Measured scan of single mutants.
Amino acid sequence: DELEKRVKKIARKLNLSLDQVEEWLKRNNNDELVEAVKRLKKK
């Protein structure tokens, strides 16, 4: 979905793993995208 695409884009842009992106999003209080990261990690 759109949020998952955004997460992947962030990960690529910042050259981070999904775990690192998740931490980064949590620090930025971006719950919506944190949920998207969790969905991606399950895939």
Rank of each mutant, 00 (worst) to 15 (best):
N30T: 07
K38P: 01
E23M: 05
D19H: 07
E32H: 09
W24I: 11
R39E: 07
L25R: 00
R12D: 13
E4Q: 06
I10D: 00
L16K: 05
K26N: 07
L3E: 08
D19K: 06
D1T: 10
L14Q: 04
W24M: 11
K9T: 13
K26G: 08
Q20K: 05
L14M: 09
E4N: 03
K8E: 13
L25P: 00
R39W: 01
E23Y: 04
L33N: 02
L18F: 07
E35Y: 00
L14Y: 14
N29D: 09
K43T: 06
L16V: 07
N30E: 15
K8G: 09
E35F: 00
L16W: 11
R12M: 12
S17Y: 08
L33E: 02
L33D: 00
D1V: 08
I10G: 00
E22P: 01
N28E: 11
V34I: 11
D19I: 05
K9Y: 10
N28R: 11
K9R: 14
D19G: 06
V34P: 01
E4Y: 05
W24K: 01
K13I: 15
V21H: 00
R39L: 03
K41I: 13
E23G: 04
K38V: 07
R6H: 09
K26Q: 11
N28I: 15
E23H: 04
N28K: 10
K26E: 10
K5C: 15
R6I: 15
E32Y: 09
L25W: 02
K42L: 06
L14H: 10
L33A: 02
D31C: 15
A36W: 05
R12C: 15
E32R: 09
V37W: 02
L18W: 11
E4A: 07
L18K: 00
K5M: 13
E4F: 04
E4R: 07
I10R: 01
K5S: 11
L3S: 07
L18C: 11
R39G: 05
R27K: 14
A11S: 05
V37A: 09
K26T: 11
L40V: 09
L33R: 01
Q20E: 15
L3N: 09
S17N: 11
A11K: 03
L40E: 02
K5A: 14
E32V: 10
V37T: 06
K5W: 10
L16R: 02
E23L: 03
E23D: 13
L25I: 04
L25V: 03
A36H: 03
N28V: 11
K42W: 02
A11R: 05
A11M: 15
V7M: 06
R12E: 13
V34M: 12
K43I: 08
Q20P: 00
A11G: 03
K13L: 14
R27I: 14
K5F: 09
K43D: 07
L14K: 04
D19N: 07
K9W: 08
K9A: 15
D31N: 12
L16S: 02
L3Q: 12
E23R: 06
L40F: 02
N29Q: 10
V21E: 00
R27M: 14
L25N: 00
K13G: 08
D1H: 11
E2M: 09
L40K: 02
K43V: 08
R39D: 05
L18E: 03
W24D: 01
D19F: 04
N30C: 15
K42N: 11
E22F: 09
R6V: 14
L40W: 06
A36F: 05
R6N: 06
K9G: 09
E2R: 10
N30V: 13
W24F: 13
N30F: 15
V7L: 09
D31V: 14
S17M: 08
V21L: 15
V34S: 07
D19S: 09
V37E: 02
A11N: 01
R27H: 11
R39T: 04
V7Q: 01
L25T: 00
N15G: 15
R27E: 14
K5G: 07
R12S: 12
K26D: 05
V21R: 00
N30D: 12
L3Y: 11
N15R: 09
D31S: 11
R39Y: 00
D1L: 12
E23A: 07
K9L: 12
N29I: 08
R12K: 14
N29M: 12
K26P: 00
E35M: 06
K8Q: 14
N15M: 08
L18A: 03
N15S: 07
L16Y: 08
V37K: 03
I10M: 06
K9N: 14
D19R: 04
N29H: 12
V7G: 01
V34D: 04
I10N: 00
N29V: 08
L18N: 01
K38Y: 00
V7F: 03
N28W: 14
R6M: 15
K26R: 10
K5Q: 13
L40Q: 03
K13Y: 12
V34H: 05
N29E: 09
E2V: 12
K5P: 01
V34G: 03
K8A: 13
L3F: 12
L33I: 03
D19V: 07
L40A: 04
R39F: 01
E35C: 13
N29A: 13
E2G: 08
K43C: 10
K13P: 00
N28S: 12
N30M: 15
L14S: 03
L18T: 02
S17W: 10
L40C: 08
K8I: 15
L25Y: 06
R12V: 10
K42M: 07
E22I: 12
L40T: 04
K41W: 05
N30W: 15
V37Y: 00
W24C: 15
K38N: 06
W24Q: 02
N28G: 14
I10Y: 01
V34W: 11
A11H: 03
K26H: 08
I10F: 01
K42H: 07
V7A: 05
E35W: 01
R6P: 00
R39P: 00
W24V: 06
E22G: 04
K13D: 15
D1E: 11
N15K: 10
R6C: 15
E35V: 04
V21Y: 03
S17E: 06
K9P: 00
E2P: 10
L14W: 07
S17R: 03
R27T: 12
I10P: 01
D31Q: 14
L40G: 02
K5I: 14
E2D: 12
V21T: 05
K43L: 11
A36C: 08
W24E: 02
E22S: 03
L40D: 02
W24N: 01
E35R: 05
L16P: 00
R39N: 10
D19C: 11
K5E: 15
L25A: 14
K26S: 11
K41L: 12
K5D: 14
L16D: 02
R12I: 12
L18M: 06
V21C: 06
L25K: 00
V21N: 00
D19L: 07
L18D: 03
R6W: 14
K13V: 13
K5V: 11
V7P: 00
E23Q: 08
N28L: 14
R27L: 15
A11C: 15
E2T: 09
V34F: 08
R6G: 01
K41M: 09
I10W: 02
K41S: 03
N28T: 14
E35I: 05
V37I: 12
V34K: 05
K13C: 15
K8S: 09
E32P: 06
A11D: 02
L40N: 02
E2I: 12
N15D: 08
K9H: 12
D31W: 15
K9Q: 14
W24A: 03
K8P: 00
N15P: 01
E32L: 11
L14G: 04
N28H: 13
L18Q: 01
V34C: 06
K8F: 05
K13E: 15
L3I: 07
V34R: 08
K13N: 13
K13S: 13
E2N: 08
L40P: 01
L40R: 03
S17Q: 05
K41A: 06
A11F: 03
D1R: 10
E32Q: 10
L3W: 10
V7S: 01
V21W: 01
D31Y: 14
N15E: 10
D19T: 08
L40S: 03
R12W: 05
L33G: 02
V37H: 02
D19Q: 07
N29G: 15
D1S: 10
K42Y: 03
D1Q: 10
D1W: 06
R39C: 09
S17D: 13
D19E: 09
V7R: 02
V21G: 00
N28A: 11
I10E: 02
K42F: 03
E4W: 05
K38M: 01
R27G: 13
R6E: 14
A36P: 00
N15I: 03
K43Y: 09
L33H: 01
V34L: 15
K8C: 15
L33M: 09
E4C: 12
K43A: 10
N30Q: 15
L3R: 06
K8T: 10
E2S: 09
I10V: 03
R27A: 15
L14A: 04
K38Q: 10
E4T: 06
N30S: 11
L3T: 05
K41F: 07
I10S: 01
L25E: 00
E2F: 09
R27D: 12
E35L: 07
